[in-house]
Write a protein that binds this DNA or RNA. Sequence first.
DNA 1: CTTATAATGAAAACGATTTCCATTTGAATC
DNA 2: GATTCAAATGGAAATCGTTTTCATTATAAG
Lengths: 145, 145
Amino acid sequence: MSPAGRAGRSRAGQGKLTRGCRRVLAVLEQTRELSSAQDIHGMLRQAEPEAPGLTTVYRSLESLVGMGLVQSVDLGDGEKRYEVVEPGEHHHHLICQGCGASVHLDQCLVEDLEKSIKAKYGFEISSHVLEVFGRCRGCLKSSTK
Amino acid sequence: MSPAGRAGRSRAGQGKLTRGCRRVLAVLEQTRELSSAQDIHGMLRQAEPEAPGLTTVYRSLESLVGMGLVQSVDLGDGEKRYEVVEPGEHHHHLICQGCGASVHLDQCLVEDLEKSIKAKYGFEISSHVLEVFGRCRGCLKSSTK
DNA sequence: CTTATAATGAAAACGATTTCCATTTGAATC
DNA sequence: GATTCAAATGGAAATCGTTTTCATTATAAG
Ligand SMILES: [Mn+2]
Ligand SMILES: [Mn+2]
Ligand SMILES: [Zn+2]
Ligand SMILES: [Zn+2]
């Protein structure tokens, strides 16, 4: 019997996750929103005072990102956000500066360029950050007044 | 006579800059490298103990970025970098994780997409971040051993 | 049960940036 | 030149997300 055994529920290979990782992942899977470490900790503690401490939340996020189950998103405000992704995948966002809404882009522009960048600059890409800020349709309408 | 008057030297309209702004800009124009606020402050103080304080460096950078003479670059390590740009322009980088070298990209991929993003998602883009990390030719060669 | 290792939590430390506030500078006015 | 007032400046303290430290507990072998 594999250690994953009869984990069953949702995501594969979840059996080998620590308690903290499981709790953090559960929150992210429910909210389906970009959440900061402190957001996650707050949600956990609100539901149950015995929930993992903030330190464990940070450590769990680090693990989950390393495993490719979660990606961290840097919006440049000094507070990292996290969200579940398809294992090993990543994507980028349109962030509305009016209402905070975020659109999850389905296609990564940068991966397409890896070969041409390698050819042109000799660089082998290992990662990248790309986030786009602006105003969503709704906020554009409101500001027309 | 315009207030810019006979400023002459290098960049236009520099006459109306504060002392701090002028000093910070001078450092950035000489180094031509991505420099943090503390880097800049250190370089200033090293040359002259009377140079602007760290607070003024931060305030100057904020002004210069607002004026479009300098862009800030977020490499995700919690310390913003700054560099001079053509007034109003911006660009992105390839950053080598081996030696720290950076290639200044000449073309912005994102601006090309503004129209299609507006059409597809209703978003009007006002800014974006894009930085690419990897290994440069030299570092790739070294690691081959 | 005993033991070694990994996970956890609270408090303290960190570090870049911001805020406070008293002082200085610089230009406009008398 | 003296006066005046707003802007600029500098150092210290505060902020705040994140990381470290270190003692305690859970987990898995043996
Ligand atoms: Mn997303
Ligand atoms: Mn550059
Ligand atoms: Zn991508
Ligand atoms: Zn761009």
